[in-house]
Structures are given as structure tokens and as C-alpha cells.
């Protein structure tokens, strides 16, 4: 269970998250939508432990633990995974080495035996097949020269290998063609389980046809301003975010989806 309470975060003295509340129960998939610059990636990065953002108020409780007190690497080992909106290129570090270092760091923490080279290779090759990645991507530098879609698949590959308890996918669907979108969605759906929660950040309700969320939230100006079921995504698709801002001005917070003009 993830409980975000009144979260405020700032960068360079500029407030980005301004009192964000969100609860995600075990086994649930929540979608977050919202205009550009509303703070979606900031939320994702703060959850993952990026220190460039300062948490100025609020708390994040994750199964009874204070998530914000842990450094990024410990959050990852405890089972938090962020699929980056912009996966980072690391020249000179092979994807194989990177994946193995990550998987073994997490396995060590969980008290599981580390993979040897052979076991690791067979595991990773099976997962690559599932996300439609050719083996050559193992021997290339991490994300270097990968196309946008290839980078996103590589994120899903990492997620599959790391088997997180809480996965945050930041626009993993952006830049994907329709086939890739299905593959990525399948990858996510395969991981769905009663003990695993997911936060899926997206601009397109199309993704939610494949990854059916339990709840949909709208993030605007650093706060969750609207929550609802799947149908909320359809409304947004049709009418954009304008009506939410307008509605927010009129009936602060309380408006239901049906209350739009």
C-alpha cells in the first residue's frame, strides 16, 4: 500500500508539487494523466529518490515504511521501479553488464542467490524475446543510439527482470508504434498480480485500452484535481483539460466527472 499525503516538492526554489494526495492499494493499477508541466514526472522522480527535487512538506508511506527516508538505490532494492520518461544513455557500459549489476543488486538485497553469467543470460534472453528486443541490444551500450521505442522496451525489460512491488511508468507509451504499445502493455499485464501495484503516467487513453486501470487521476498544477474510473480518461480524451481547470475554479475539488459544462 502506497500512501502519499500532502506532498510538496520544489526544484531550485520553485514549487512543483503542491499538496499531492494519492493512495494506491496492493494489486491496483492507477493511471495519472495531466497537462504538460503539471508535475507528473516530478512525482515519479520524487518517488524514485531523485535528490535534485526537495521535498518541502508531506509524507510517503510505503507498507509502513517512510519511503522518503531511503536513498534511491535502497528504494529500488526494496522493490520500487521507475520506467523513465527519458531513459538515460550510458556510453561504454554494456546493457548486459548494466542489467546484471541491477538484477544482482536487487537479488542480493532480497536474500536470493546472485545469478551467474549463464543463468543470467538465459533469463535475460527469455525476457528480451517477450518484449521483442533482439539479442544484440545486450552488447550495445545502455540506451546509446537506441530509438525512442527501443529505449522504452529496454525499460520494460528492466522492469520484468527486477520484478518490482511498485512500478511507476512515466509515459512508457510515448513514441511507441501500435505493435510496440501492445508488447509493452503485455509486459505490464504479465506483471500484474495481487501484491504488485502500478502507477501508469500517460497522455493517451489508448494505452488504457490495453492496461486497464483501477483508477484514473488527473494531475494539474502539482495536485491531483480529479479522480475517477476508466471513463475519466475517455472524457479527457474528448474534452482536454480545459474543463477540469474551469470546473476546479467553480467547485473546488468536489466536482464529479459528470459536473462538466
Amino acid at each position: 500500500m502506497l500512501k502519499i499525503n500532502n506532498l510538496h516538492a520544489a526544484i531550485d526554489g520553485k514549487d512543483i508539487l503542491k499538496g499531492l494526495d494519492l493512495e494506491v492499494a496492493d494489486g491496483e493499477v492507477h493511471a495519472i494523466m495531466g497537462p504538460n508541466g503539471s508535475g507528473k514526472s516530478t512525482l515519479a522522480q520524487v518517488l524514485a529518490g531523485r535528490e535534485t527535487f526537495t521535498v518541502t512538506d508531506g509524507s510517503v508511506d510505503w507498507d509502513g515504511a517512510d519511503l522518503l527516508a531511503l536513498p534511491a538505490e535502497e528504494r529500488a532494492r526494496a522493490g520500487l521501479f521507475l520506467a523513465f520518461q527519458y531513459p538515460v544513455e550510458i556510453p561504454g557500459v554494456s546493457n548486459a553488464y548494466f542489467l546484471k549489476a541491477a538484477v544482482n543488486a536487487v537479488r542480493r538485497h532480497r536474500g536470493l542467490p546472485e545469478y551467474d553469467a549463464m543463468d543470467f543470460l538465459s533469463r535475460v534472453k527469455a525476457e528480451m524475446k517477450a518484449v521483442g528486443m533482439k539479442e544484440e541490444f545486450l552488447y550495445r551500450s545502455v540506451n546509446e543510439g537506441f530509438s525512442g521505442g527501443e529505449k522504452k522496451r529496454n525499460e520494460v525489460l528492466q522492469m520484468a527482470l527486477l520484478e518490482p512491488r511498485l512500478a511507476v511508468l512515466d509515459e512508457t507509451d510515448s513514441g511507441l508504434d501500435i505493435d510496440a504499445l501492445k508488447i509493452v502493455a503485455e509486459g505490464v499485464n504479465r506483471l500484474r498480480s495481487p501484491e504488485r501495484s502500478m502507477i501508469v503516467i500517460t497522455h493517451y487513453q489508448r494505452l488504457l485500452d490495453y492496461i486497464v486501470p483501477d483508477k484514473v487521476h488527473v494531475l494539474s498544477q502539482g495536485r491531483i484535481v480529479r479522480s475517477g474510473g476508466r471513463e475519466l480518461a475517455l472524457e479527457l480524451e474528448e474534452h482536454g483539460y480545459g474543463w477540469i481547470d474551469a470546473a476546479q475554479g467553480g467547485k473546488a475539488g468536489g466536482a464529479s466527472v459528470g459536473a462538466r459544462p
Binding site: 524514485a48 529518490g49 531523485r50 535534485t52 536513498p71 534511491a72 538505490e73 528504494r75 529500488a76 532494492r77 521507475l82 523513465f84 531513459p87 538515460v88 544513455e89 550510458i90 556510453p91 561504454g92 557500459v93 553488464y97 548494466f98 549489476a101 541491477a102 543488486a105 536487487v106 538485497h109 551500450s141 528492466q158 527486477l162
Partner: peptide
């Protein structure tokens, strides 16, 4: 810094991440 954070977000500790990037 982005690469360091990326590695750490995958469970690699900061010391190892620095070494790895230096070596690379």
C-alpha cells in the same frame, strides 16, 4: 548526474555507480 541516478534507481549503489561510469 543523470546516468548516476539512473544506475542508482536500478539498485546499484552510489560508489559502484561512480566507479562504473568512470571505468566506462
Amino acid at each position: 548526474e543523470d546516468a548516476l541516478f539512473y544506475l542508482r534507481s536500478r539498485g546499484v549503489d552510489a560508489v559502484h555507480a561512480r566507479q562504473l561510469l568512470t571505468y566506462a
